[in-house]
Design a binder for these strands. Structure first.
Lengths: 355, 355
DNA sequence: CCTTGTCGTGCAACCGGTTACATGAAACCG
DNA sequence: CGGTTTCATGTAACCGGTTGCACGACAAGG
């Protein structure tokens, strides 16, 4: 029952093989696939039948070389383990497949230098890039855009085709929501400094805080990770705030873990708001969060990309997607008598190595 | 300040441009990059200097066509939004970059048919595939393997090069852990039916249950998702069990949410064990879970792939990676007097549409 | 001084497609 | 019925590299 893998010795059939079998020229075979309207009905059928029988599949590489079109696109993300970008990838691949494009994925690990290298390496093989939250300076992006079409996601640079997820309104609503519950002060835990989304969200929170009489305290993290969220909790508690808005859900999760470690419960002692739309619905307790349709963002990015490539004068188009504030279980009115402090309980996990 | 994107009009310099400038043949230029040892030191330096000045970069596509080597690899995963596969991707890309390979990523959405299509589409552009938890029948995989090198992850088929993450020992330990805590019955909530990992984990749980006198109840889900986990909770409660081992962390999270909705608390009323190594460390409360080094799995897959491609007779190699049971906060001794039932509290979230 | 071998480079074919242009046959038209 | 279109197909050049083979120069060996 142990079938051997038979590595096929006979190379894959080429256009010449089909041409020979069909007793036509290679050009005809090519046209039978590329421009069937140039050939007679019968000829197309004939050639295709032969091709089918031989198992012929046009060679993507050869086609790319002679046409100058790669038939590929690349998606660059700063962190694929972040559910936001993972969902984005799904959206991109779905639409790309529909237009016969294959998708390279590259993860820059939040590193601008690596991002630059990856773009350069892939440039030869793709017709266009979708750059999600790129960290590269505008100048560098302009250079790359000069060679290959680039669509940006969550980075707002004039003259670039770009998709922006507008979290501002929802963050403002979140602040209002907290104000209504009776919070007089709240913290904003920021994401990557260079991130457009982060700037937008911070501004929205500050403005809304002003408007609704909520004092805003800022906390910085260099990367939006669980650990970073956990780490900022000490400062959070010290600051005397009763609510926190995080840049994203990953941070929010970390914050919740940190709060628990300090003996504080959510939402009784602390209210927490995140942002993303994936993780929030997949963890417990259900996180009050700004929901984003990441998949749709990816799909629209692909469409925008092809529009630009086809020269539909969509070059500078700016598409803004809206978001929703979804109120779940991590926000409530602050404890009237103030917080009940408890000693931190650092639960170090027990590891059992197998094998 | 609004720089225009200047789409470069002059096409990228080719090997001919360099040859002309350097007053040598195209072959020499080619060798200056590919086989410098065939050329004199000075010639290599000369050509490279000219190339540098012109900004010449060898055309990947053309090279791929003439050598027959694509210089790319593809990673196929059933669900990129699952943190396990996302981490895997990172490992793969890291190693691939090191050997000058670019990585296609394809998400099959757990659909064998789509998987088949994706492999076929990408075959022309890659030298090899890394198939993570492929759902295709063995027969089909054999066919694909005949055309392109394939390395499997978490699928155990003889004669295939493959990487297996051995969760068995850790799941056995988990059952033992539960037994020690005093649980007499536990549930196993399974993942994809076709998944090798799932079979392995189930068998391990059953065997260990037998050995330690813990009765095992099985629950099936078609996809390991948060929702599926949530959905199976009703049955879980009905079955009268006091602990649950989930196929992965996503399921475990769903189960915890479902339990909470039914008014049961973890770990007081119910003990929960997951598996993965990413999500468990990023959510609260910290999940007792079988940890897997996904990134390393990805790295090793790439290395295995290049070994096979270089014909290092690694064709049938079977690499087994170990896992760790990490005991965190979701397992405890069962409530002595049995569970305290409460009425379910279906918390429907409030949506606030922005804009 | 001629032979033989080694080394550095060029020539030209090839990888597998696409496409501008040429060609020949059929259809149309006055 | 000759001349002009139109249509279907073939011819050959081209995309940008790689590589087997040929060739000339120069050094070593007899």
């Amino acid at each position: 029952m142990e079938e051997k893998i038979v590595r096929s010795v006979d190379r894959a059939p080429t256009i010449s093989d089909v041409a020979q079998q069909a007793k036509v020229s290679r050009a005809t075979v090519s046209r039978a696939f590329g421009q069937p309207q140039l050939l007679s009905r019968e000829m197309v059928a004939h050639v295709r039948a032969i091709a089918e029988r031989l198992g012929y599949v046009p060679n993507h590489t050869a086609r790319a070389l002679s046409t100058g079109k790669a038939g590929n696109l690349a998606l660059l993300v700063p962190d694929i383990t972040n559910p936001f970008f993972a969902s984005l990838m799904r959206g991109v691949q779905g639409r790309a497949l529909g237009i016969q494009y294959a998708t390279f994925l590259a993860d820059s690990d939040e590193d601008p230098a690596l991002e630059d290298v990856l773009i350069a390496k892939l440039a030869a093989q793709v017709d266009g890039f979708i750059l999600a939250s790129p960290r590269l300076p505008k100048k560098t992006l302009l250079q790359h855009a000069g060679r290959r079409v680039c669509v940006l996601i969550n980075r707002d640079i004039p003259n670039f085709a770009r998709i922006l997820v507008d979290g501002a309104k929802s963050y403002e609503e979140a602040v209002e929501h907290l104000a209504r519950l009776g919070h007089r002060t709240a913290a904003y835990v920021s994401g990557p400094r260079l991130s457009w989304s982060n700037g937008q969200r911070l501004r929205a929170v500050l403005a809304a805080g002003m408007r609704h009489g909520v004092k805003i305290v800022q906390f910085a993290t260099d990367r939006p990770t669980f650990e970073a969220g956990e780490a900022c909790v000490a400062g959070l508690i010290e600051s005397g705030t009763t609510a926190v808005l995080a840049y994203d859900d990953l941070l929010a999760q970390g914050i919740m873990a940190g709060l628990a470690r300090h003996g504080l419960s959510v939402p009784e002692d602390f209210s927490v708001v995140g942002c993303d739309g994936v993780l929030a619905t997949r963890t417990y307790p259900p996180l009050t969060s700004v929901a984003i349709d990441c998949q749709s963002a990816g799909e629209q990015a692909v469409e925008l990309l092809v529009d630009v490539m086809r020269g539909k004068s969509a070059s500078g188009r700016r598409i803004v997607l809206s978001s929703d504030l979804v109120i779940r279980a991590t926000t409530a009115r602050p404890r009237p008598g103030g917080r009940t402090y408890q000693a931190p309980a650092p639960a170090s996990p027990t590891r059992t190595k197998s094998e």
